[in-house]
Design a protein around this nucleic acid. Structure first.
Length: 593
RNA sequence: GCACCCGUAGUGAAAUGGAUAUCAUAUCCGCCUUCGAAGCGGUCGUUGGGGGUUCGAAUCCCUCCGGGUGCACCA
């Protein structure tokens, strides 16, 4: 429809012998101003230095000459907008389209494209915190939106299976054998390993604070020097070496158990969150690949400095800074592994068109540097990399740090939210199995929606008391509207009234719901174009509100009402769009709640 | 210090350079003998300060103030 209107305007301009005008066609915020609106007259008037309102009238006359049947009238309003009002026939046709066209929601923005989306990235031996929950919710939703836009999407997860964090956790496990308890579910065991990690990190940091004063503040301090003080530090670094070397029986056993248990616990969470990964990349495997790339390009792109191998990105772009890729001890840094990962992805998925990585904002600058290095070495990848960053969960107590243990784990947040839902539905007459399924669906939706309702870049204020809402602008509100509509449809079936979208059965009044349901595919396309799920979230709130309002003012199922079959068809259309929209957010639509 | 991001009702957010800045929450007032009140209707209240560009600025530019993040051997 939007295209149709654009062409209509272009045709009118041609008749007026005006060329090369950039204008937009959009939905006015207020439905009073029509279904579509254009600023074309204001743009032209500026160029021709004439009065915009008069000029709008002139264009309107041209447009009206060949008005298609979907447009019932046009009008000039405001500062010179031309508004288009769609006909009842169009709206009724759109309801029929929603019911009959299985591909209604789709667009072809990415058709034929192979895309990999990397997201979540929790590290084994460390807790899965709410930051990971955020990355997961956004990544999964973006993946689904791209799929709906024609892409073939692979989901990837990148995990740090080696490094100091593992050594810290194992240190904690060795010091406090109780934490090696292998009873209970994966989540319980993983929880204890998380505690061990916190213990290990604290021991490590306390040692750092007890450094001799003479050593503090020396910027030239080498890692090797730090080995000389602090028992815990020393031990942890010993453990770290043994993990790499795999030459210690006891540590190997703990490592293998801890790796499996934490990874399995993550897997349980992914299942609950509705994510299934196609590829897992491990940091230990990316390290040699990255090292190879760096070493092949020393003196070319990378250079030696203070015994380390660095990349002076500032030489290529003044906004970027220098970063170490290989330490003075010859160990590969995160940047090097990231470089290896980027290249490995293109090998894993040949002919990939786009490689997307979702992380928190803090990684933006590192990733820019890595991307710069990558594009200097592999120019062909430059336009195929996309980094999506999101804000963090702001806690009233300050920044969360898994090292300090002042975090809300993703697992505990999900559990607490589900408990809250369980409490709410405990008196419903459903069997226990259904109740726990509903609690899970609604709980996860509350969390995911609170993340996806706002634009991706911003932080989310996280308040223990009232962060997760079940009312108003919330996931459960969407689900509730869906369930309510389903229940109406069930009643219609019992009373044997069949849906019928044809206009002859429709009431004269056009409901607001009809005026916005047809916009769904446009919203999905915009979400895909901008990699922004929140447009869909906001849109779903709009249609849910419209439906609830329609529901409140109309009796849908009514044998006496000849319009009832049409209203039932409209309710059907609402459930179709809502279910699909929830799916795109990674949220399930329950049948009952 | 340098770079990047951000500042919208009491609170949390939305807005493709467009029309009377939109939602939710909190407050207050109504509505369950019509199909699910996790709902509906009403009430209250907003673009950090100052310049500039524009027919038109929350949005673009400059500046000041305030916050966040990142800047050499962690990931």
């Amino acid at each position: 429809m939007q295209e149709k209107i654009k062409n209509l305007i272009k045709e009118a301009l041609k008749n007026l012998e005006i060329l090369d005008i950039d204008f937009i066609v959009e939905h006015p915020e207020d439905l009073k101003n029509g279904d579509y609106s254009t600023n074309v007259a204001m743009i032209c008037a500026k160029k021709l230095k004439t009065n915009p309102k008069d000029f709008a009238e002139k264009i309107k006359i041209e447009i009206d000459k060949n008005l298609p049947k979907e447009i019932i009238k046009t009008e000039v309003a405001g500062a010179g907008f031309i508004n288009f009002h769609l006909s009842p026939g169009f709206f009724r046709g759109s309801i029929e389209e929603i019911l009959n066209n299985k591909n209604f929601s789709q667009n072809n923005l990415f058709s034929g494209k192979k895309i990999m989306v990397e997201y979540t990235d929790p590290n084994p031996f460390k807790p899965f915190h709410i930051g990971h929950l955020m990355t997961n919710a956004i990544g999964e939703s973006v993946a689904r939106i791209l799929e709906c836009s024609g892409a073939t999407v692979s989901r990837a997860n990148y995990q740090g299976d080696v490094g100091l964090h593992v050594a810290k956790a194992i240190y904690g496990l060795l010091k406090n054998k109780k934490l090696q308890d292998k009873s209970g579910a994966n989540a319980n065991q993983a929880g204890r390993i998380g505690e061990a990690y916190v213990e290990g990190s604290l021991a490590y940091e306390n040692d750092e604070e007890s450094k001799p004063a003479s050593a503090q503040g020396h910027s030239t301090l080498r890692v090797s020097d730090s080995m000389s003080y602090g028992e815990a530090r020393k031990e942890i670094e010993e453990i770290n070496k043994k993990i790499y070397a795999r030459d210690d029986e006891e540590i190997n056993k703990i490592y293998d158990w801890g790796f499996r248990v934490t990874m399995d616990a993550f897997e349980d969470l992914y299942k609950m969150l509705g994510t299934k990964f196609d590829f897992y990349f491990l940091e230990s495997q990316m390290a040699p690949i990255g090292e190879g790339i760096v070493k092949d390009n020393v003196n070319n792109i990378f250079e030696e400095s203070d015994d380390a191998i660095v990349f002076k990105a500032g030489k290529h772009d003044p906004k970027l800074h220098t970063r170490v890729f290989i330490t003075s001890l010859g160990l590969p840094m995160y940047e090097t592994k990231e470089l290896g990962l980027a290249v490995e992805k293109f090998k894993t998925l040949p002919n990939m068109n786009l490689s997307i990585v979702v992380t928190a904002n803090e990684q933006m600058d590192y990733m820019r540097v890595v991307a710069k290095a990558l594009s200097l070495i592999y120019g062909e990848y430059t336009d195929k990399m996309k980094h999506i960053t999101h804000g963090m969960m702001r806690l009233s107590t300050g920044k969360m740090s898994s090292r300090k243990g002042n975090i809300v784990t993703g697992e505990s947040l999900i559990r607490d939210t589900i408990d809250l839902v369980s409490l709410k539905i405990k008196d419903r007459e459903y069997d226990e199995e259904l109740k726990s399924k509903i609690a899970e669906q609604v709980g996860v939706s509350a969390i995911k929606y609170s993340i996806l309702k706002q634009s991706t870049g911003g932080d989310i204020a996280y308040d223990f008391e009232k962060s997760i809402s079940f009312e108003g602008d919330s996931g459960p509100y969407l689900q509730y509207s869906y369930v309510r509509a389903k229940s109406v449809l069930e009643k219609a079936m019992k009373e044997n009234i069949l849906p019928d979208p044809h206009s002859e059965n429709a009431p004269l009044e056009i409901f607001e719901l009809e005026k916005i349901l047809y916009r769904f595919p446009e919203v999905v396309e915009r979400s895909a174009r901008e990699y922004e799920p929140h447009y869909i979230a906001n849109y779903l709130i709009e249609i849910a509100h419209s439906f609830n309002s329609f529901y409140g003012n109309n009796k849908v199922v009514d044998k006496e009402d000849k319009n009832s079959p049409y209203k039932i068809a409209l309710t059907f259309a609402f459930t179709f769009v809502m279910k699909k929209g929830l799916h795109l957010l990674g949220i399930e639509a329950p049948e009952k709640m």
